[in-house]
Design a protein around this nucleic acid. Sequence first.
RNA 1: UGACCGAUGGUGUAACGGUAGCACUACAGUUUUUGGAGCUGUCUGUCCAGGUUCGAAUCCUGGUCGGUCAACCA
Length: 568
Amino acid sequence: MNKPENNAAENKPSLNFLEQIIENDIKTGKHQGRVLTRFPPEPNGYLHIGHAKSICLNFGLAQKYNGKTNLRFDDTNPTKESTEYVDAIMEDVKWLGFQWEEPVWYASDYFEQLYEYAVYLIKKGKAFVCDMSAEDMSKGRGTPQIPGVESPWRNRTVEENLDLLDRMRKGEFQNGDRVLRAKIDMASPNMHMRDPVMYRIMHAHHHRTGDEWCIYPTYDWAHGQSDFIEKITHSICTLEFEVHRPLYEWFLDNLDITGERPRQYEFARLNLSYTVMSKRKLLQLVEEKYVNGWDDPRMPTVSGLRRRGFTPASIRTFADRVGVAKRENIIDVALLEYCIREDLNKKAPRTMTVLNPVKLVIDNYPEGQSEELPALINPEDPESGNRTVPFSRELYIEREDFMENPSKKFFRLAPGQEVRLKYAYVIHCNSVVKDENGEITEIHCTYFPDTKSGMETTRKVKGTLHWVSIPHAVEVDVRLYDRLFTVSEPEAVEEGQDFKDFINPDSLKVVTGWCEPSIKSAVAGQAFQFERLGYFNTDKDSTEEKLVFNRTVTLRDSWAKIEKNQNK
RNA sequence: UGACCGAUGGUGUAACGGUAGCACUACAGUUUUUGGAGCUGUCUGUCCAGGUUCGAAUCCUGGUCGGUCAACCA
């Protein structure tokens, strides 16, 4: 009954379905154990975190099994593509920490080869030039339930097809006049097998081939053959291409390819709660100015995440933790937040910054005096060393850290109560000063010199506050970002509603922050923890005069939960 | 009323015919000069109905629910 091998099995890490397939292929000697994956973006937009999952998957699989990964631009539609996107995509892939097998490939490199393959299919009687309009072709295709009708041009002679394709290439026809179609089966239950288009006429300038071509291959015609040409072993794409696989196979079959051939596998794309992922919707957010560009820190784009302050390591960890499977999923954005906190907790220097200041005066601290107090740069990183923080009579603390009539669970400052100022002293609150509106303008305290940080003291306090010395404070701009949508599934809204109806009006708040002087060394892209508040990244908008910070993510806030529950 | 794919706690993901595990979330305790971080623990799960089997999340049959497919997009 008891199987001793169970113990051994327990140590074996579990594999996702693609790893299982690859391990099996290696075991059976398929491709001589070779693994070559590819990441095939179309250069028509910016990469988002869903692409990042695919990148981590393709490159990660190759790394794990001693293989390589090709970066290949699927540039078969010149009207939508540009080198701007090519460059941005390369930057993002590199930033994520992956190196592709040089050189960079382009589907457009294979246009001539693809053309020859097409001629081959025509000669075999497996492809034909069709003169139907797009509209008529659409009508004739039928529906998934109803078979299509065959094109009247389906039985042209090989010679005529060859001649027509040649003249299509030479530019004798206008856009839309004719297409080249595969001759498969108009009655197939799979719509993609109903004589799919292989070439369409597009008199358009291509960002790489210029005006050399005026016919361009479709995705289905280009993709599998590109995989074959590059000797890709495992061609991994998302679920919606599953129905394309029979066509992928058909082309390879009918090209009489004898050598190793690629195989297509499909996995479920990433969806994230409280955000949208479709390129169309992201474009809309940018064009209609709901956000400030593709790299707006609220965007789920790689460039947006980068600017927000996410690290490549955190995104890789995230991609790893979301797993790979074939079922539709929506990942809780809390997992992403967990991954970045986990990473930055170990790496980010600490600094004390007050975002919603109220003045605190220490009555028994001499006017005009100040002192430099030592503080840890990062208590989680023993190597990080010390910084010093200036202390003086007048400080800022957060308004939320004071309460005139606190509940029992409030561990911060209140009249008659004591707290520690982090890295400084324990203080006792004596009184408050208010303006004519009843708003507190000053909190008066006394400090206990024998409680200086590092000294032995018997004075126990329940709370520790961050603070900043007013005369030494550095004024900075802080952008407080929150999730872009108020609902967890903005792409699944009801009829008559639009995802934009659920944009969070408070997704960005800009405030002035008061920061300890150590912040002055900040450079664009650098991450900090503002103690007790969250992680913040130095934005590229920073100038000599004014630093700008983007809030990456707050710290977990268990007080906020207590407060919320109290109000119930 | 087609074809294909999928279904395991709140969210993801393992278990490959033999004790349903892991992560996130939530909650509790512990610790703490960040109500942070850490550590410990707890709650919650195999879509349904049959069948095969000593034994089924796993195999079979039939349902149910969800997704994808009708661009000269990718």
